[in-house]
């Protein structure tokens, strides 16, 4: 995305944001509360239309303008989001949630491969496949949200704050899982996180967003760790 400007009504949240994610990379989008991480992700998914700037997907030499596409069309291109707040269907079972994840035409044929894989990656989901999603614990729900996104056979996985509301040990597990899934599926991952230490465990590189502007672009996790902003906001140095 280049020079994206976006907001809600008259309130401008993103002031010309440029972010690039190349194929096969894991990129972290770091920022504390209210700096615009989720807003940026909503723009990519077509849930919010930018006021200016461009967002495009380049694949097989074609260049697709995402700002002109609906959310459904963007999902059909193979982009999946694990949204903030998980957004499961609370009164559907675990299995029904997963199968809805495979709604897009490109994913239906892969169910026989994807469903066993999700159950293997998150065994608790297999045990609870008939349980209503709304009655699962927070950690289980987060795993279900990730698994549901994988059911759509994505090429690109967007994850909005997977660590929110989870105990540290679960955060470590969920982050490690994302890494594992990425390797296995050859995914491209963009992950919004506040938890710097966890995010940099699996990220190749990252951006730091402050008040709707990219304040720093780290070409490696080492570079991120050395940055003054990071030291100030995240590491408490």
């Amino acid at each position: 995305m280049r020079d994206v400007v976006a907001g809600y009504g008259a309130v401008r949240i993103l002031h010309g944001v440029s972010v690039e994610v190349r194929e096969g990379e894991t990129v972290a989008l770091l920022g504390t509360n209210g700096n615009g991480k989720s807003t940026l992700i909503k723009c990519i998914m077509g849930l919010l239309t930018p006021d200016a700037g461009e967002i495009y997907l380049e694949s097989d030499g074609a260049r697709i303008d995402l700002t002109k596409r609906s959310t459904e069309e963007i999902v059909d291109l193979g982009i999946a989001l694990v949204p903030e707040g998980r957004r499961l269907f609370p009164r559907l079972t675990v299995e029904e949630n997963l199968l809805l994840g495979a709604y897009r035409t490109g994913a239906r044929a892969d169910i026989d491969r994807n469903l066993p894989f999700c159950f293997e990656a998150f065994p608790v989901l297999r045990e609870r496949r008939r349980q209503l999603a709304g009655s699962m614990s927070g950690g289980e729900q987060q795993m279900l949200a990730i698994a549901r996104a994988l059911m759509s056979s994505p090429r690109i996985l967007l994850v909005d704050e997977p660590s929110v509301g989870l105990a540290p040990i679960l955060v470590t597990r969920v982050i490690a899982k994302i890494r594992e899934l990425k390797d296995r599926y050859q995914l491209t991952v963009l992950m919004a996180e506040q938890n710097f230490n966890q995010a940099t465990k699996i990220a190749d590189r990252g951006y730091i967003i402050v008040h709707g502007r990219i304040e720093f672009e780290g070409r490696s996790t080492a570079e991120l760790r050395e940055n003054e902003l990071v030291k100030k906001y995240y590491l408490g140095v």
């Binding site: 609906s70 959310t71 459904e72 999946a80 957004r87 559907l92 709604y103």
Partner: peptide
């Protein structure tokens, strides 16, 4: 009726 945004994220209108 449970979550329309989530449904769109599944690719359904």
């Amino acid at each position: 009726s449970q979550d329309q945004v989530a449904l769109r994220l599944m690719g359904a209108n």
